[in-house]
Design a protein around this nucleic acid. Structure first.
Lengths: 187, 187
DNA sequence: ACCTGAACACCGTTCAAGT
DNA sequence: ACCTGAACACCGTTCAAGT
């Protein structure tokens, strides 16, 4: 519904782009709970302008996610051709965890949005889950992943690992992820 | 440092207890981010009284955790005698997840406090981790759990599962936990 | 058509004044 | 020794007025 910026007045479009760029910078540095007033100030616009372009914080996140989701979806298509269904799934999960961990607080937003259909982020969560499902199914049909694991499970695990990664050193995050991927395997 | 209420004036002690009781109720109903003003009002005291007894939100949580940690520590001692080291660890992890999931937001607070030594909750996290370590070691010595898993890993997994449990149905949370416990096992 | 920023609301936190 | 609540700070959000 928010859609790409289609036909805006030149100044509006410039503000839109600057807001997105500053939001990305602020989210990277301070997490998704950073003050919106700060973002507006850095973009050189009044707070009302931010709200007119992005009515909620999630709308801002959603706009930032859009390109990334495309990247992951493209990656998913490649991975479907990978000779090892198990490795393909592992690779995908690692990419998804990196995505969900890119801003502190993002995993929490994604996890909430998944069950909240009214969230601006809901569609992005569904796309991610649907992409993962393709690789999950293939791994299950190959008999390397537990047949009872669902695409929702995969989504939750990805976010839980990204969430844990916000609080532990990188080597520990990697170990936890390896344990989790292993836990998905058939015995 | 905050310590149990030792010798307070009778009215102070009554306020202390009422604040704790109302905090517990509010945390259960609305999570750990509930307004402190609301808790004070429900306890029938002014906001300044809440702050004089509990200088931070974490101090309030810490006081509420104290009894629970005792319960878990006692349970840990029993589980050390359990004939199956693997089952003992699983049982302990389930109890710890239930604990960390008792208030929405608690897992996040615990996870942050673990790495923040200045947090009022830090000691509680250490106690929990130390308790888990006893059962982890025993399971590792019995050869049923991966030798590279650490007590910190266990703590992080417990909190990650409690965190996920805040957003998914109970049956899914149970399945995710089962996957995780399985991922800790040796192959 | 879009932008501005004052105005309002809500909450956390402190502290001077009371008992 | 403890309690009260006004005061201050900060931020989210709306909307009447401007261009």
């Amino acid at each position: 519904m928010p859609g790409e910026p289609r036909r805006m007045r030149a100044d509006a479009r410039r503000n839109y782009e600057r807001l997105l760029a500053e939001a990305n910078t602020a989210f990277l540095a301070q997490g998704t709970e950073v003050s919106l007033e700060q973002i507006a100030k850095n973009a050189g616009v009044a707070i009302g302008t931010l709200y007119s372009h992005f009515p909620t914080r999630q709308a801002l996140l959603e706009a930032l996610m859009r390109e990334r989701i495309k990247t992951i979806t493209a990656r998913t298509r490649e991975l479907r051709e990978h000779p090892s269904p198990g490795e393909a799934l592992d690779t995908w999960v690692r990419a998804a965890v990196a995505h969900a961990g890119s801003y502190r607080g993002l995993a929490t937003s994604l996890m909430s949005a998944f069950e909240d259909e009214s969230s601006a982020l809901h569609a992005a969560c569904r796309e991610l889950t649907t992409a993962g499902e393709l690789l999950l199914d293939r791994a299950q049909q190959a008999g390397v992943v537990r047949p009872d694991a669902t695409a929702s499970d995969l989504f939750a695990l990805v976010n839980a690992m990204a969430w844990a990664g916000e609080s532990v050193p990188a080597d520990q995050a990697e170990r936890l992820l390896a344990f989790s991927l292993d836990g998905l395997r058939t015995r």
